[in-house]
Nucleic acid binder design. Structure first.
Lengths: 205, 205
DNA sequence: TGCAAAACGTCAATGAATGCAAAATTACAT
DNA sequence: ATGTAATTTTGCATTCATTGACGTTTTGCA
């Protein structure tokens, strides 16, 4: 089932790839709003109408590797060692799915540019948050399944607090203009705080 | 400055109010996607073009009271008692700004219907998450200011983990079809988990 | 009263997104 | 190889949100 790509599938994949690369290039060159779907379609030599059979919307193309990231994360949760503390498990999930480049070369290639792009276009921010939210719900289910000792609410709280802390911290860092190195450290700390809880925060002097 | 509504302001407010009520009524009657901006504008007797001087977009109208909710929250943070633990402060913020009906009658009136509406329209979900995200960044700043012992990263992690936990838990509850009563309990637990940390979760058997 | 600013409205245009039916392409069995 | 069925692609028309330019009406105030 997984083999046998077939001409049709191969062609589709090539077109998809071309669309992604063309779109990201155009977005970088002229900006997201200034790039039309028609122009994107042109870079892959397909009709404008056909674009929408590859992606549901113009903004979807930016998040082409979200699904594989999610799958990776679910996989990691599924491979949990019996008895492994939830906190440890979640640390691995963060490390290996949020930061690792899942979609091979393409993802790595566009990485930083894409981050900047999303941050600068409100429509993309909204889309990203929506996708991320959906991802969290699926992670919640996966976690609940992999950890029978957690009920659904506990699993949801675990996922939500961890992801929420990281997301807001990253945004705060970007807003302040931190260097990636500092941001990375901040993420570590956010993870620690979510795992240890707000009570672990410094006490008033 | 805050007084002296003036004919102009009063008129604007009345129009705004009419737009909100008309829009929510139409959304309830025919659904969000089936309602055009032109129809909404008609309920308040203004031109379609003019709608956009009241709200930036069609979806914005659903979140008419977000700003006042945020202001309430920032206010509560600002009134922090010196020495009050961050955890206690954040509990109050959640209780009094997320759950209280800030925008008086209107908010209470549309409350449950609006929640259902948002949950059923992807575009509104995305918009809500985006607004909520922005709110979190502002809360982070406010918290950082009110609690000098917290650096920006700690403040962001505190806000993010708490809000993130609650949001995901609420969604998980809705998805499963919990009754509001149960959802409320779940929110309490989510708050506890975010405050106490993932380490407070049950250990594997 | 009369002027300047604020609101409002008209008109036109752009561009995303979708439905539909015809045309082109690919897969597959004979 | 050939015909047929299944899948994709495409062109076309349409709807609708959103925006810019510009003229008109209201309102606030000197």
């Amino acid at each position: 089932m997984t083999s046998d790509p077939g001409l049709r599938q191969r062609k589709k994949m090539r077109t998809r790839q071309a669309l992604i690369e063309g779109a990201l290039r155009l977005f970088a060159e002229k900006g997201y709003d200034q790039t039309t779907v028609a122009e994107i379609a042109a870079t892959a030599d397909i009709a404008t109408r056909t674009f929408f059979s590859y992606f549901d919307s113009k903004d979807d193309i930016v998040f082409f590797d979200d699904r594989s990231r999610l799958e990776r994360a679910v996989e990691i949760i599924g491979e949990r060692q019996p008895g492994e503390p939830v906190a440890d498990l979640m640390r691995r999930v963060i490390d290996q799915s949020v930061f690792a480049d899942t979609d091979s070369e393409l993802a790595r290639k566009v990485g930083p540019a894409r981050t900047r792009l999303i941050a600068s276009v409100p429509a993309l921010q909204a889309r990203e948050l929506h996708l991320l939210f959906d991802i969290q719900l699926q992670l919640t289910e996966a976690l609940h399944l992999a950890c029978p000792e957690l009920d659904l609410v506990e699993a949801a709280a675990a996922v939500g607090s961890l992801v929420g802390a990281i997301k807001v911290v990253v945004a705060a860092c970007q807003k302040r203009g931190n260097r990636p190195e500092q941001t990375y450290k901040a993420v570590q700390r956010a993870t620690d705080i979510a795992i240890d809880g707000l009570n672990s925060l410094p006490r008033p002097a």
